[in-house]
Every structure is written in structure tokens, then in C-alpha cells.
Design a protein around this nucleic acid. Structure first.
Length: 853
RNA sequence: GCCCGAGUGGCGGAACGGUAGACGCAGCGGAUUCAAAAUCCGCCGCCUUCACGGGCGUGAGAGUUCGAAUCUCUCCUCGGGCACCA
């Protein structure tokens, strides 16, 4: 009997699939379609286990749906623009384009041996001019529809390198290369008007039935609809015509506890003051040394500067509040001004303690004492509280009610207005970088901002650029930059900003439906293939990528590039966990960590040691595989060692797909052993002659149909690990079965087929061995016969006071009364009752019995 | 700091509010072998008991329920996101 040799079997069947064009997506109106998509990779150069996991999951779905008779679209492409290519060019020389396309070729070569059911004829990279040219065309369409505009926005500015930095490139407030303290700077930038869609994007979340609740919740919170009060404080002796400070608050119920008014260092009033007051100028400059991220802002020590100005409280003109400039208020949020209520907010409490401002309560717990001087009292909004200082309304009991009452009161008295606001801000898409999609507009002194003519698209990135200096080489490229105005023909300047790479990934799924079309999409193809039936990717994209894509689908529909049904482009979403690995570290002479690849570590009884030197190795618990920690396993090596099916089987088997999976050598070894065992088992069955004993046939059939049912449900519900556990159990049953040869052969064939989405190569081999017709790929999925799924008897556990104490086996459809009789006659129950009667007897038919004493 | 998750044996994990620990790994015992590898069979949460059995157990604490790993609240730890990483 031959052995299972992945290195021979896998290429053989991959060639067979190619030959049969098994994965070519065909628009077939006669069949239902299924579009399965995994988030496309960034071409870093190496695939990692996270990719293997992601694409294997998609592949299981794609192959399963194929077998269910769907016309399946399962494409692959490359999210190819972005910073790393420019960084590589700066560090190692060369061109971002060469680096990127080289990486794509490498990664494609690493991916092919996995045997994924991908239609490679649709492959593209977002840095292909054919792709980004269509993106530019859509940008112009968006301009026509008023979905794009320009405004000033804040960026991280490296004053030494004279370049804009990404948040990632700001480390401890300093530029990652220059080490210079970063400054905030205002630039005029392009924006998508995603905020026009705030309400719609929020409300439409309710219809996303097959999205994880957690993702929907995160998106809802991100869009952040709030009801609040818009009003203004009047300035006392406001300088230079500044007579009021506009504020929006979601907590007007706490207005009677106001202690100060805070404004952003970039607030017009603050900017005016800094021109006259060196102290203000110094403070504002200090504030601007912080990065732009909300995280940094919120974590930084809260600082304020008393401007010396005061405002009047809107309800009591005698009540004056000081005006502070505060470093934690960003001009981009709301009005760039807040009022502080230290009695009911931790941040304001800290601030007032620090600057000696009064702390006033406006409500307290219903019962008991609370000293707001020591700690702010922050109840849940629906919690009933005892009001001490009410803006309005005697009958309010909760903060929610008080907010509405306060808004009503303010509107009635002309102090302010109730408004609904959204947290979602417009999407700034300008990037001051080379390796991105050029924004297709020209700046003309006469005509202003003019879109490029569509006939001139794509606006190609120039190839002759150098990365010896920091900054955007497009700015320094006169022959590319200087062009005639598309409108008047006079000398003008091309926009040198490129687009955020999130733009590229916001519509690639639509492009896959017609990847070579001369327009962004082809409506007939989009109409057939859209929507994505199942989208699979990392939870880290739960907000931005998915929200931007939802916006883009709407914008594309407005411009006629997608049908109305596709404004929600992803019908179902699954967010998978990461692949992790232990980290191995030794220390150098200065006690700095030195990381080691798992393949360089050996295990001895004394623990882990370096294979080369025998030096003991410290083992740090599993974390996301990353190059810097060297806790990576190269899929290429794993495939070479065990084969693709083993890698696929393992990444699916041990952990639920939404959770992180830890890669262990032992786990991979176990997967390989099991597949070899299944092969031996099937080969033995294939060789067995004639009919054997038939007494056990029915038991095996029963197990087979149960397994068909369980595995099918498992795949449908992304319970791959549970499905695989059932497959283990079934192969054990099959190995021990005393059934006849025909029944065993039937069972083995079902096993091969049920495994085929996970281990397609092995399954093809077994299918062939067991006399299956043609390829198992695409062969009709087995159906569970319901007659085999029902059991005649059930075993009911008997609980006494909620603890399992006994059990009875009864006919499945025995009446409740009969069950009760049998339970009361049970020895353990009789003993527990000790002659008395139970207080309560709960019978859950078919499940459990509970006797309450 | 804010938003969202996760936490179950030595390990990965299973479990429509209904027998906690399926399945796998590791470990232990046995078969086979001159021996080993490979393979096959059996045991395997913790404490207690010769045994039958009993007690305890799903990050901690409370609550709802006849019954909670599962629902609610508070807390702890870890992970994801926070708008220029992709």
C-alpha cells in the first residue's frame, strides 16, 4: 500500500484543477451565484500564517458553495500602494514599483501551493494604472456630484525632514527618522463628504443581519449619533469683536455644575490671543507639539491656561466662568470649545482639582452620601438620581430625562437649541506621498481647481523619481508637476498629493466583478456578482475599512457604478482571529532582548535552548506573529515539510475561527499524523475485497449521516474547529466499525468529501482511490438523510436541586406525565425525597429533569 | 483616556439557559518490535476514598433562574480600534 506523500499528490491535483478550469468564475444566469472574498493582502513580500488562515477559511466556503451548486466568484488581488514601499526605496534604494511588483510575484508563488480555489484570471494590484486610472475617473465623478471638497486640516509635521508624518511615524512626539519634536501643521487637503451619509450609514447597520454584533456596535459608536444642546456663552469684555463662545454639549443636565469654559489652542479666540500674549503663544505652541491622534490627546497630561477672560452663565448673568485654553480639546471636534463639569466627569474633575476651580454637584445618588469634592459622581444615563440643581423640570428622575428637559427649557427661553450631531468626521484622503493614486486635478491660477480630462486618465505616477531626500518626490518633479490647465490651457500645476490607500481598498471588491472593464465597473457583471455574499478578514478593519467601503458603495451608486442593491456591499461578514506564536528571547551583554526564530530553538528537558549554542532561551507567551519579535513560522517551510493540506487542516482545527490560534509545532505534527491515518484507513477500505459482515452497517450509516449533518452545519456557521472535531470522531468510528465493505466504502467516500473543503488535495486522492466519479471538487455535496438523524430513545439526566444525580433512558416521545412517574420511581430520587414529595418537578422534554426539594 | 471583544483541565478548545471538559495535543499504562521510530489499544479536571461514592470546579465578586461557562451588574487581566500602519 502506498503512503500519503503530499509533495507528490498536491501538485498533481492542482494541475488537474487548472486543467479543468475548476475555479474560473463564470457568469451563469441559470445558477445562483456566490461571491466569497477575503480581505486582500498588502504585498509585504512574504505570506504569513495569518494569510494562510484567512484564505483557507474563504477557500472552505468557496469550495463548499461550489459543491452546493453555486457559481462561485473567489478572486485575489493586492492592496499595493502604501508607505512600506517608499520606506524600502529610502532604505535600500530601488523603486517602490519594482519592490512592490517583486513582492507580488513572490507572494503569489508562495500562495499557489496552498491549492486555493482562486480565479487567478481576475487578479490585479491597486498600483496597476488600469486600476487607479478607474479610481481617478470615479474621483472626478464624485467631484461632479459634490462628494469631494477641500479644507484645511491638521497634520503631523517633521520640521527637520520637512515632511508630513503618519501617526505611526511619530514616536513619543518625535519624528521616527529625524528625532525632531513633531509639530501640528495646517494644510489644505481633499475630503470625502462621508458625514453627509452619517445618518444613513448608521441606520443601515440595522439591516446588516449577518454581520457580527460587535462590529455593528463599534460602527454605531464610531458614527456616534448624539442628542445635545447647542448654545453659546457670552464673553465679558471679549477682545476684537469676539463676543461669544459657541458650545455643543450632550450633557446640558449638568450645566448648573459648570466650572469653566475650555477652548482648543486652535480656536479662533485662542489664535487671536496668542498674537498679543506671549504666554498664550508659548502655551499654544506647547500644545501643538503633540501628535494629532485622539489616543495621544486623551492620554496626555491635561494642561490648561487661564486666559483671564470670563463668560456669563446662560442661566444666571451674575455667574461668571473663567475661560481656559486646554490641550485636550481639538478644533476638529464639535465647536472646539466645551464647558467643564467637574462634579460628574472624571477629566473635568482632574482639571478643576489641578487649577483650583470649584466642584459643584447637580445630582447625587438616590440614597447614601457622595462627596463630589473627592470623586465625580457618574451614574448610568438611565439610573434614577436625586437632583440638587436642575436646569428645568421638576419631575425628571434620570439624566436622560434631565437632558431633554434642559433642552426644552433652553429652547423656550431662547438660550440654545436641541440638535442631533454625529461624531463621524469627513474622510481626509490627501497624502503627501509618492506611492499612491494621484489625485487627478490641476491647479490653475485662472480657473482654480480643475479636474483632469477623463480622456487623459490615468494620471500615471512618473517612474523617474528619487528617494534620496525625505518628502514627496512628486513635489520636486517639474516635468510631471507642470502641465497645461485642462480647461484654459494656460500653464498650471498638477496636484501632487496622492490618495489614502483606504480609497484603493474601498471598491476593489466591485472591480473584481469586471477586472478588465474600461469603466470602473460593468453594470451587468456587478449586477450578477454583487453583493459579496461572504467577506472575511481581520477584526482590526472593523471600523475604518468597512465604513469607508460602505460609503464608497453609496457614492458609486450615485455615480452609476453600482446597482442600488449594492449600497451595502457585504451581505455577510466574518472577522477572524490572529495566528500567534510563543516568543523566544535571550539577552545580549547590555541586557537588551535578542529574539530568535522558532526553527532555531530546541526543546530539552531543562527547557528551551538555542539549537546552535545550547544557550537557554526565555519563552514569552504567545503573541501575534511579527517580524520584529521573530515569532514567525514561514508557511512555505510548513508546506514543504508537511504539505498544504496539513497547514490548512491545522489552522482550521484547533481554535474557533474568530479567536486567535496559537501555532505550535506539535499541533502541525498532529494534523499531519491524522491526515496520514485517514489516508491509510481509506486505502485499506479501497483495497478490501467483496462484502464483509453487514450487521454494523446501519450504525455506520447513522454515524455518517449525523456527521454529514454536523459538518455541513459547522461549515455554514463558521464552526470549522467543531466540524473538524466531528470529522475526527467519524474517522475513529469508521476505523473501528465492523460494517461491510460496501458500507465502509460509502462512509469513506463521504469522509473524503466532507473533508474536501479543508483538505482538497488529500480528498481528491481518496475520492479517486475509492472510485469516485471525476473530481471531488465541485461534486454535489452529500445530503444528510433525516431518517438517520433521529434516535428512538433519549437519556435524560435527573438533577436534584440542580445537581446531576441520576439518569433515565426513555422513549423519545414519552409523555411528560409518564416521565414524571418514572423519575419519582428512580432510586436516587426516592432516596433524596426520603418519603416526602418534591416541591417542584421540572421536565424539559428530551433534555433534562430537575427535582426541587 | 474612550469604544469593542476575550478569559473553561498541564495545553488548544467543546457545550440551543439544561449531564461542564466533545475532539485534539501533552502525559501515563499496555500491545507490537532484538531495539527504536511508526502504528494500535486503554487511562487521563482537582481534592478525598481500598472501593462504592462524596466534595470542589468555567478570571474575581454579587445578582436573575428550578437550573448560569452561557443572561445582568461591578472589578481584574489580556487583545483589537481610536480617523495618516495596512
Amino acid at each position: 500500500m502506498s503512503r500519503y506523500t503530499a509533495s507528490e499528490i498536491e501538485p498533481k491535483w492542482q494541475a488537474a484543477w487548472d486543467e479543468a478550469q475548476s475555479f474560473l468564475a463564470r457568469r451563469d444566469p441559470a445558477r445562483p451565484k456566490y461571491y466569497v472574498l477575503e480581505m486582500f493582502p498588502y504585498p509585504s513580500g512574504r505570506i504569513h500564517m495569518g494569510h494562510v488562515r484567512n484564505y483557507t477559511m474563504g477557500d472552505v466556503i468557496a469550495r463548499y458553495k461550489m459543491s452546493c451548486g453555486f457559481s462561485v466568484l473567489h478572486p485575489m488581488g493586492w492592496d499595493a500602494f502604501g508607505m512600506p514601499a517608499e520606506n524600502a526605496a529610502m532604505e535600500r534604494g530601488g523603486h517602490p514599483k519594482d519592490w512592490t511588483y517583486g513582492n507580488i510575484a513572490d507572494m503569489r508563488a508562495q500562495m499557489k501551493p496552498l491549492g486555493l480555489s482562486i480565479d487567478w484570471s481576475r487578479e490585479f494590484a491597486t498600483c496597476d494604472p488600469e486600476y487607479y486610472g478607474q479610481q481617478q475617473s470615479m474621483f472626478i465623478d464624485f467631484m461632479d456630484k459634490g462628494l469631494v471638497y477641500r479644507k484645511a486640516a491638521t497634520v503631523n509635521w517633521d520640521p527637520v525632514d520637512m515632511t508630513v508624518l503618519a501617526n505611526e511615524q511619530v514616536i513619543d512626539g518625535k519624528g521616527w527618522r529625524s528625532g525632531a519634536p513633531v509639530e501640528r501643521r495646517e494644510l489644505t487637503q481633499w475630503f470625502f463628504k462621508i458625514s453627509d451619509f452619517s445618518e444613513e450609514l448608521l441606520d443601515a447597520i440595522d439591516g446588516l443581519d449577518s454581520w457580527p454584533e460587535k462590529v455593528k456596535l463599534m460602527q454605531r459608536n464610531w458614527i456616534g449619533r448624539s442628542r445635545g444642546l447647542q448654545f453659546s456663552f457670552s464673553l465679558i469684555d471679549g477682545p476684537h469683536g469676539h463676543d461669544r463662545i459657541e458650545v455643543y454639549t450632550t450633557r446640558p443636565d449638568t450645566l448648573m455644575g459648570a466650572s469653566f469654559v475650555g477652548i482648543s489652542p486652535d480656536h479662533p479666540l485662542a489664535r487671536m490671543l496668542e498674537r498679543e500674549n506671549p504666554e498664550v503663544a508659548a502655551f499654544n505652541a506647547e500644545c501643538r507639539r503633540m501628535g494629532t491622534s485622539e489616543e495621544e490627546l486623551e492620554k496626555a497630561e491635561k494642561l490648561g491656561l487661564d486666559t483671564g477672560l470670563s463668560v456669563r452663565h446662560p442661566f444666571d448673568t451674575a455667574w461668571e466662568l473663567p475661560v481656559y485654553i486646554a490641550n485636550f480639546i481639538l478644533m476638529d471636534y464639535g465647536t472646539g470649545a466645551i464647558f467643564g463639569c467637574p462634579g460628574h466627569d472624571q477629566r473635568d474633575h482632574d482639571f478643576c482639582r489641578k487649577y483650583g476651580l470649584p466642584i459643584i454637584d447637580t445630582f447625587l445618588p438616590l440614597d447614601g452620601d457622595w462627596d463630589v469634592q473627592a470623586d465625580p459622581y457618574v451614574p448610568a444615563k438611565t439610573e434614577k438620581v436625586r437632583f440638587t440643581r436642575l436646569v428645568a423640570g421638576e419631575n425628571v428622575q434620570t439624566c436622560d430625562e434631565a437632558v431633554e428637559a434642559a433642552i426644552g427649557f433652553c429652547e423656550a427661553n431662547g438660550v440654545g437649541q436641541g440638535v442631533t450631531k454625529f461624531r463621524l468626521r469627513d474622510w481626509g484622503l490627501s497624502r503627501q506621498r509618492y506611492w499612491g493614486c494621484p489625485i487627478p486635478v490641476v491647479h490653475c491660477e485662472v480657473c482654480g481647481v480643475v479636474p483632469e480630462r477623463k480622456a487623459n486618465l490615468p494620471v500615471r505616477l512618473p517612474d523617474d523619481v528619487a528617494f534620496d531626500k525625505p518628502g514627496n518626490p512628486l513635489d520636486r518633479h517639474p516635468t510631471w508637476r507642470d502641465v497645461p490647465c485642462p480647461s484654459c490651457g494656460k500653464p498650471a500645476r498638477r496636484e501632487t498629493d496622492t490618495m489614502d490607500t483606504f480609497v484603493d481598498s474601498s471598491w476593489y471588491f466591485a472591480r473584481f466583478t469586471a477586472p478588465r472593464a474600461g469603466t470602473p465597473t460593468n453594470l451587468a457583471d456587478a449586477d450578477y456578482w454583487m453583493n459579496v455574499d461572504q467577506y472575511i478578514g481581520g477584526i482590526e478593519h472593523a471600523i475604518l475599512h468597512l465604513l469607508y467601503s460602505r460609503f464608497f458603495a453609496r457614492a458609486m451608486h450615485i455615480c452609476g457604478h453600482l446597482p442600488a442593491k449594492s449600497i451595502e456591499p457585504f451581505d455577510a461578514l466574518f472577522t477572524q482571529g490572529m495566528v500567534t506564536h510563543e516568543i523566544y528571547v535571550t539577552r545580549d551583554e547590555r541586557d537588551r532582548p535578542v529574539y530568535h526564530l522558532p526553527e532555531h530553538v530546541e526543546w530539552h528537558e531543562s527547557g528551551a535552548r538555542l539549537g546552535a549554542t545550547g544557550e537557554p532561551v526565555e519563552v514569552i507567551p504567545s503573541a501575534k506573529m511579527s517580524k520584529s519579535k521573530k515569532n514567525v513560522v514561514d508557511p512555505e517551510n510548513i508546506i514543504r515539510q508537511y504539505g498544504a493540506d496539513t497547514a490548512r487542516w491545522f489552522v482550521l482545527s484547533d481554535s474557533p475561527p474568530e479567536r486567535d490560534v496559537e501555532w505550535t509545532a506539535a499541533g502541525a505534527e498532529a494534523a499531519a499524523k491524522h491526515l496520514a491515518r485517514v489516508y491509510r484507513l481509506a486505502a485499506e477500505i479501497a483495497d478490501a475485497p467483496g462484502e464483509g459482515p453487514q450487521g454494523a452497517d446501519e450504525d455506520l450509516r447513522r454515524a455518517m449521516h449525523r456527521t454529514i449533518h454536523d459538518v455541513t452545519m459547522g461549515i455554514e456557521s463558521f464552526g470549522f474547529n467543531a466540524a473538524i472535531a466531528k470529522l475526527y470522531a467519524f474517522s475513529n468510528t469508521l476505523a473501528k466499525s465492523g460494517a461491510g465493505a460496501t458500507a465502509k466504502r460509502e462512509a469513506a467516500r463521504a469522509l473524503a468529501q466532507l473533508m474536501s473543503p479543508m483538505t482538497p488535495h488529500l480528498s481528491e486522492e481518496l475520492w479517486h482511490l475509492l472510485g469516485g466519479e471525476g473530481l471531488v471538487t465541485g461534486a454535489p455535496w452529500p445530503r444528510a438523510d433525516a431518517a438517520y438523524l433521529v434516535e428512538d430513545t433519549v437519556t435524560l439526566p435527573i438533577q436534584i436541586n440542580g445537581k446531576r444525580r441520576s439518569e433515565i433512558t426513555v422513549a423519545r416521545d414519552l409523555s411528560k406525565e409518564e416521565v414524571e412517574k418514572l423519575v419519582l420511581a428512580d432510586n436516587a430520587v426516592l432516596k433524596a425525597l426520603d418519603g416526602g414529595a418534591p416541591r417542584k418537578l421540572i421536565v424539559v422534554p428530551g433534555r433534562i429533569v430537575n427535582v426541587v426539594l
